[in-house]
Design a protein around this nucleic acid. Sequence first.
DNA 1: GCGCAGATGCAGGTGACTTGCATCTAAAGA
DNA 2: TCTTTAGATGCAAGTCACCTGCATCTGCGC
Lengths: 141, 141
Amino acid sequence: MDPSTKTLRDAGLRATAGRRTVLTTIASRGAPLTHAEIASELTGLDPVTLYRILDSLERAGLVHRVHGLDGVWRYCPQPERRGCPGNHVHFLCTTCGAMSCLVDQPLPRVTPPPGGRIDARQFVVGGTCARCSGAGVGDAG
Amino acid sequence: MDPSTKTLRDAGLRATAGRRTVLTTIASRGAPLTHAEIASELTGLDPVTLYRILDSLERAGLVHRVHGLDGVWRYCPQPERRGCPGNHVHFLCTTCGAMSCLVDQPLPRVTPPPGGRIDARQFVVGGTCARCSGAGVGDAG
DNA sequence: GCGCAGATGCAGGTGACTTGCATCTAAAGA
DNA sequence: TCTTTAGATGCAAGTCACCTGCATCTGCGC
């Protein structure tokens, strides 16, 4: 059985061709990808279907979803050790739009406002990545 | 001179009627408001103009801007002590959509990826606010 | 192989936000 | 106070991410 098929079946999802391709694409990158980025690599898949596939993968806990400072959702493979999904800082390069996971920097504990409850946490930092720093002004510091 | 006029002039902006009203509206709430929420209180102001006013206020450092988990920007008055704008955790109620600033919880230091630089940080937590938690179990006021 | 719940594709829609351009006005100088 | 003008505003139109409804298709249990 194809590994992505097993992953999907284990998560309680049907292993359709579209889901297997999307899962493989996201996993092979290791960095959060936008809907558009994934779609550009998967010609032939309906955009709406891709939205639904990403939604099902996220609800099944196979990927986590991060909202960039640019207003676009990004999807990232969920690491093996199943902790809180996406429980780390995400770095978004505001020049090239690439996002990366700072998995070594876990999110701090947050105290909810009185009487409230916290269900999701999302810490995104924006800046310039090494590639864009080097390409533009040669200043990486 | 009207206080909002002075604030705008001090920030290097023209004190137009629209800007004064928007600034007063945001300041009077003390919590991040969406474009739609501000627009609903300011009938007669063109939506596009409101976008531009919010943009100018943000660039002048008079408000800070937070991206909610719902994909909508929210604008919040900048506190007197001019530190890093919006340098605290923001709480978004996923039930009623209200956002509040957890000003007593500053953002932790984040180490950028090798060779990269961080310009902006945004930590949003989603959950249920006290009002919505209470509404479910009997006390809605 | 069969049946069906769930997945997919297509058409159309929503809402946040942007752009271009003509008109108006706050603010500075005469 | 009047004039000038750079910058602000209003309107029309457009872009983009994402959603909804519905008919058709297909993975998977039987």
